[in-house]
């Protein structure tokens, strides 16, 4: 296995959790809700996924449990912000802190225990192809799921009525309400979907990326996922590109350190955020881009008059 192939493999594993968490958040934000609790939902997903895999021996049960954990926190977020109309930013930040705290407490017993690894799926023949074989056809299930999700979200958002309703709610919740769309229901479902994706992303970390439990193992990936959504200007295909780019930057940190390049690792770890700021500057200069892709109701509370 060549060096290049090895790096590419690690880029995929680094990009997948970002992609999973970000594609969920993209749908949430398209519906007009800003959930800053991605990091919290991820880490709870990571610890619950690890625990369930330990208990059952099945990494798939772990992944399922990770999703449920993310959805539980998302439901709490939805209840507070959609139902009780609490401030979304404050609630999201609180959710992150809650998730980190809860995960630390639950995970205390698991520190240092070996985990159950999610095995790669070897597609016979194809995975033996030179160069591309392992990369394209020898990944674990979640990698394929993350890619399928991007395709599915793209299709649903832009080619189905459900997607149209989600975008409409995010663009103008008042009008959507006036047309008879249940704004709250749409947002609840979007937030739950986002929670499931974030939980699964966390599960990927503790089941595939490094199959063990380490406190704080999400290490800011939830925040990168949030930045990624803006970086992608709320478009799924750009999100895919961004996730792999950010994943590559993350991997570069290790290699830069290992090979003693003169780049401080702090600089590289700051790169995704700097890139996001740069993108924000660029898209805010082009207002048509901002207007058409940015959900206009993002973060704005909705209270139906009745």
């Amino acid at each position: 296995m060549g060096m290049f192939e090895a790096i590419l493999l690690t880029v995929i594993t680094a990009a997948t959790p970002l992609l999973l968490a970000a594609i969920g958040e993209l749908v949430v934000e398209r519906s007009g809700v800003l959930n800053l609790g991605v990091e919290g939902m991820m880490i709870l997903g990571a610890v619950m996924g690890f625990a369930a895999a330990q208990a059952t021996g099945s990494p798939y049960a772990g992944a399922l449990c990770a999703m449920l954990a993310g959805m539980t926190l998302a439901l709490l977020f939805g209840f507070l912000t959609i139902h009780l109309v609490a401030n979304q930013v404050a609630t999201g930040l609180a959710l992150t802190l809650l998730g980190l705290g809860l995960a630390g407490m639950i995970g205390e017993a698991f520190v240092g225990r070996p985990g159950v690894r999610l095995q790669a799926i070897d597609i016979p023949v194809l995975s033996d192809l030179p160069v591309v074989g392992r990369i394209l056809f020898g990944q674990d299930l979640l990698v394929y799921i993350s890619l399928a999700l991007v395709a599915a979200v793209t299709y649903v958002l832009f080619h189905t009525r459900v997607g149209l309703v989600i975008r409409a709610v995010g663009d103008n919740h008042g009008s959507a309400h006036a047309l008879g769309v249940s704004v709250r229901k749409v947002r609840y479902l979007a937030v739950l979907f986002g929670g499931a994706c974030a939980g699964l992303a966390g599960g990927y970390l503790s089941l595939a990326y490094t199959p063990q439990w380490i406190e704080g193992m999400t290490a800011g990936r939830g925040w990168i996922a949030l930045a990624l959504v803006v970086f992608a200007t709320w478009r799924p295909l750009r999100l895919l590109a961004g996730a792999y780019l950010f994943g590559a930057v993350g991997i570069m940190q290790f290699h830069a350190q290992a090979h003693g390049f003169g780049i401080p690792s702090q600089f590289l770890s700051a790169l995704p955020y700097a890139a996001t700021i740069a993108v924000l500057v660029i898209i805010s200069r082009n207002r048509i881009l901002t207007r058409i892709n940015t959900p206009a109701c993002l973060g704005r509370p909705f209270v139906p008059d009745r």
Binding site: D171, N172, S175, A178, I292, P295
Partner: peptide
């Protein structure tokens, strides 16, 4: 109903 304050979605 034809609304006074447009009930249109600008991004669509």
């Amino acid at each position: 109903m034809v609304f006074q304050h447009f009930s249109l979605f600008e991004a669509l």
